[in-house]
Amino acid sequence: MGCDWANEMIGMAPAAAQAASPKIAVQHLEFAYPGARGGTIMALAGLNLAVPDGQFCCIVGPSGCGKSTLLRLLAGLEQPTRGNIAVRHDNPALPVNSMVFQGDSTFPWLTVRENVAYGLAQRHVPAALRVARVATFLDMVGLRSFSDAYPGQLSGGMRQRVSLARALANDPEILLMDEPFASLDEQNRLLLQLELLRIWETERKTVVFVTHSIDEALLLGDRVLLMSARPGRLLLDELVAFPRPRDPYTLKREAAFGDMAYRIWELLRREVNRARDIEMQGVA
């Protein structure tokens, strides 16, 4: 990954570069993959994005618009077809990013404790530190008493909390979250959103958070991005200026919240319909 891209900008002292350069810089990003009938499908076409250090950035868009692909590219799990991704890695002792994957992403063969400790173990973090961090984050997601259970013994919501704890325990510079709460019921989603807000407000990590829920994006984010139907481009890029700490129910009563959600929905609705048309063409 081109981690040092930003630091090598002409003539800037490292400290100044750190202050000025974004944590994540994406330029002219294109991503294509082979289609079913021999052609290529463009998932992303000419995407530009800069995320400053410590920003909570939410991405909304219709299904299949390439949101997940963008996250996988940011995580380095895929390589861009064209264009550039630069992620600034400030502390080499910590991982640059950790991803909370969509859907169930616990290892069934590891206990809850071992799942949360997985990243730490791969990086050979000393055992004492590992134990302490795992305990901290298991407490945070309320699964301490299930430390020795296997994921197969847990509910879907509990498994999602294990994935979240694993990503947080890694203490990454950037958290990449791919619809982490989509499979949860309303109450558990709300509790975990609040928990995430609380953690983020103390640690102020850079977060890229993909969701299909506008409400969720406005509740959590400093900034909301709307992606178009395939091939994905940015249609809207706005700061979400509601004061923190935020409370979902007071926030939803404010007119500004409703206005913003409505405006984004109007745009999104068009894209959802377009995405459907594209899919229909694919079928036909």
Binding site: R72, L77, Q122, R123, N170
Partner: peptide
Amino acid sequence: PKYFDIARNNGASRWQIYWTVAFPAAL
């Protein structure tokens, strides 16, 4: 394949992926 992605994202080396993912998953 998602298990391999998760392992890579958590910093597992090639050898670690064999031991911590491929082997237990195939057990």
